[in-house]
Structures are given as C-alpha cells and as structure tokens.
Amino acid sequence: MHHDHDHDLGLAHDLSRLQLQALQRRGALRWLLGAGAAGLAGGSALCLSGCGGGGSEAGSSTSSSSGSSSSSGGSSSSGGTTTTTSGCSVVPEETAGPYPGDGSNTSNGSIANALALSGIVRSDIRSSIAGATGTATGVPLQVIIELVNTNASCADLSGYAIYLWHCDALGRYSMYSSGVTAENYLRGVQSTGTDGTAVFQTIYPGCYAGRVPHMHFEIYRSANTATNWNNKLRTSQLCFPSDINTAVYATSGYGQSAANNNAISLSSDGIFSDGYSTQLCTVTGSVSAGYVATLRVGISA
C-alpha cells in the first residue's frame, strides 16, 4: 500500500548529526502471515496481517456517536509477551507490517525510509514533506503517547523518540499505496518531553479490510538514532474504542471504512486477538471538535 523515496538529506540534517530486536512470538507469526501482503506494495489498501483494518471491539466502553465522548479500556488481558512491573506493563512487540517506511524494505524498487527525510521530526504529520505536497484529510486526531519505564515504578522516559505512522482515511499508506506513492504524509518522529509524552497531530485512520483501525509506532533511544529500523528498541501498535470508530466512519471521506469496520473486531483481529489492554487508547472528543487519543506505553529501560 505505500511507496518509497530516495533522499540524501536525513534526520542528521535536521538535528546535529541495539540492533533490531527479534520479533517476539506473536510478532514473528504475524509477519509471516503478512509477508505475502508486502508484494501488494503499490496496490490496493488491503493488508493481510500487519497493517490495518476495522471492526467493533470487545470490551470497549460506551460513548455517544454524535456528541462528545470518552472511551477507554478493553477487558481483555494483554498478550503473553507483556510483563507487569510496579503498575505498568511492557507494551507487546508487534509486526511493523509491510509498510513501515523505516528503511527495512523497499517500494517501487527503492529503499523506503521516511526516517531519512528532511523534516521528519515534526508534531503535525498530516502533510507530506521533503518536496512532496499532499495533505491527508479526515477527522482531526491528536495522539499523545506517554513512555514510561517498567523497571523504575513507571517513571516517565524523556529524550526518547517515537516514530508513528498509519494509513489515511481511505486505508492507503503513503510511500507504498497506489495513488500515494509520491507522498509521505502520516509519518513522523517526536521526542518525548520531561513528562515522557510525544504528541502528534494527525487524522483518524481509515479502516481497510482485514484489520481493525490502528496505528504503528517504533521506539528509539533518541531522535538522533531514529534514522533506521536497525536502531529501534521496540515496535508495537495501538488501537481505538469501537464506539469512536463507528462515529468517525459515519462521516464522509472514509470510503469503505464503515463496512470494513463492521466486518472485524479486536477479538478477531490478527494482531489484537490475544490481548490489547496495553494498546487500547483512551479517546475523548467528538467528530465535530476532533478527538484526543492517549496511551501509556511501557518499556523495560
């Protein structure tokens, strides 16, 4: 679903200029399931296992589809790879999917590495950068990720970097998907502040066939090391309450998202079916005002 770019200027140009963790049990399996989808790069927005999809979710809280809302918390426990220390849990390792744009694969014959783009360190990820001019449209969404240390009583981790990426309202991934191979929107890197948070301004992702609505993220020790997948500390995904998905997909501009969303749930999704309690965002807001999604992410630092 995405494309790739060759760029000489990279993150080192924006700043001042370990090894990839082996995918854990369920991440490895999902990559095998999704590997075949990598061959669809440049095709339709269908991903077998590593990218996105939609559906009602088990254990989500309630909210109104039209007014302001607050939803959070699934009742399912997180997967077997998650450990708990002092009240916070290590977020499960998940596949990056076929469209990471982190230098780990190619699109249209070239290495796809958004992390090498000048300007990739940014909070607002709705527009393309480095000469590309497209802008993703959809219901506004602010994503706030708080990174904490499970080995230190959930202390906030400052100075780390989070690379966030997701599909657009039509389920397409920039850099890979047909029609947006020349774009690099909905991808960006933010450093965590003294409160451990990284904040992204984006749009609510679409729902494509085979996956619940979700976003991908990678954690790096610093923005200086967030230049290539080889340096990442952890890869995971986040998801959203079903009532919020339903409210968003009742609006225009989201294509087949409503139908795709109705065909799957968190309990049947290939990534989240074994647990999602540490990956389900708390969401507040409304379609008219936009939403804010927050998630506490634990790592063993």
Rank of each mutant, 00 (worst) to 15 (best):
P92D: 09
Y208I: 07
D8G: 05
L9Y: 10
S63D: 07
I145T: 10
V297M: 11
L266V: 02
A116R: 10
T135L: 03
T150C: 04
A301G: 00
C51Y: 00
T82Y: 03
A182K: 09
I203G: 00
Y254H: 04
G206W: 03
T227W: 00
T181W: 00
R234T: 06
L238R: 02
E146T: 15
Q24Y: 14
P140H: 00
T133Q: 11
N108H: 09
A161G: 11
S49A: 09
V283I: 13
A152W: 00
R122S: 04
S288W: 04
N261Q: 12
N261C: 03
I120N: 01
L147D: 13
G42M: 06
T62Y: 12
N261R: 13
I125Q: 09
L33P: 00
S60C: 14
T282Y: 09
G80C: 06
S75T: 15
G275P: 14
S65Y: 14
N261H: 13
T282H: 15
F240K: 07
V189M: 05
G80Y: 11
Q256N: 13
A293D: 06
R172M: 08
A226C: 12
L233D: 00
A155L: 05
A258H: 09
E218Q: 13
T95G: 15
Q19G: 15
D14Y: 04
Y249C: 02
P140K: 00
N108R: 14
D124K: 04
Q279H: 12
S71D: 14
L238H: 03
A293M: 08
P92W: 02
A28C: 05
T150E: 07
V283E: 09
T181H: 02
E183R: 13
C88L: 12
Y185N: 08
S107R: 14
R296Y: 02
A182H: 06
A258I: 07
G59Y: 02
H3K: 06
L157D: 02
T150L: 02
I162V: 14
G119N: 08
V90G: 01
G36R: 14
T135W: 03
H13Q: 13
D243H: 08
S69T: 11
I111E: 07
F200V: 08
